[in-house]
């Protein structure tokens, strides 16, 4: 293998890692846009999504890409409950409260999952395991192509939903001007619940894709990706979905590049170094507006 194909291959893994980050970050951004809250425990929904997919897969043996939908639907429900019980009561009580509340949620979800499913690491085998497709000088396993396609489909679906449906337009209206939306008769609390659920569903999709790509998972898997997803949306600018996509790709590439050039230990640190450097020069992120 020559240097160029090594480079291309690493670029490809960066792209794949980016897909998972994009899904997580878009979900966070959706919630932030509408409710103006940040859930640091978002990664726990990724973990729950992964476990739901895995559990159904172990029980029925269905194609995990089909279970993805089920897992997303389940997480809409769980997300709605969490929103109603935890975030609704503290809306508007100060931004630090959400961060503290998320810490409580992290404790509950991680250890709750450990109580239900055990804390051992597990893995799921994809049905397309072992099929590879040659692209140029690379040979790429089919699973990664599917993962990228699924990510693209979910994101375009979300785009169409926000642009074309009434509900989507109501969500955008709420995110642009909450009071205005209330005035024209939109039930903003309902919109809150729906967007929180949708955001969680995106996290579940990310979790499922994580599982099928042959990575192991355990109850503690979610916290670091979630914080990184949050770093991504800050990088891209809070509330900006294109920002989240570019930020996610950037982060996926930077991490894999750092693991290659500096050693694997730098994988987490490099994301935050980029974040800090960007924030020094642009306190609202790369694509952020004036709102901080």
């Amino acid at each position: 293998m020559d240097n160029l194909s090594v480079f291309l291959q690493i670029l490809f893994w960066g792209l794949y890692a980016g897909c998972i980050y994009i899904l997580l970050a878009t979900g966070l951004n959706l919630i932030f846009g509408v409710m103006k809250v940040v859930n640091f425990a978002h990664g726990e929904f990724l973990m729950i999504g992964a476990y739901i997919t895995a559990t159904v897969f172990f029980l029925t043996g269905f194609n995990p890409y089909v279970i993805l939908l089920l897992s997303m639907v389940a997480l809409v429900g769980i997300g709605a409950v969490v929103e109603r019980l935890c975030f609704r009561p503290i809306l508007g009580t100060g931004k630090l409260n959400e961060i503290f509340l998320s810490i409580g949620l992290i404790y509950i979800f991680q250890n709750g999952a450990a109580m239900i499913w055990g804390d051992a690491w597990q893995s799921v085998k994809s049905p397309y395991d072992g099929i590879t497709i040659p692209i140029g000088s690379l040979s790429v396993p089919l699973d990664y192509i599917i993962i990228m396609v699924v990510t693209a489909v979910i994101l375009s679906g979300l785009y169409l939903f926000l642009k074309k449906t009434t509900l989507g337009m109501q969500m955008r209206a709420t995110s642009q001007n909450r009071k205005g939306a209330m005035l024209v008769g939109i039930n903003v609390e309902r919109i809150d619940i729906i967007s929180f659920g949708l955001g969680c569903a995106l996290a579940a999709a990310a979790g499922t894709l994580w599982v099928v790509s042959g990575q192991v998972f355990n109850p503690y898997m979610g916290s670091i990706p979630a914080v990184k997803a949050f770093a991504i949306i800050i990088l891209g600018g809070l509330g900006s979905i294109p920002g989240a996509i570019i930020g996610g790709l950037l982060m996926g590439l930077a991490e894999n590049g750092a693991a290659f050039l500096l050693g694997g230990i730098w994988k987490d640190a490099v994301s935050f170094i980029i974040l800090i450097v960007v924030l020094i020069f642009r306190p609202t992120g790369l694509f952020g507006g004036k709102e901080g």
């Binding site: 630090l96 770093a231 809070l238 730098w266 640190a269 935050f272 800090i276 924030l279």
Partner: peptide
């Protein structure tokens, strides 16, 4: 680096900082 940053930004920078310090230490 934080003086210009608000709530979540600050939380993120400090969180990341702990990870960076750990990485440097090892």
């Amino acid at each position: 680096t934080c003086v210009r940053l608000k709530e979540w930004f600050l939380a993120m920078v400090t969180f990341g900082f702990a990870i960076i310090v750990q990485t440097l230490t090892v």
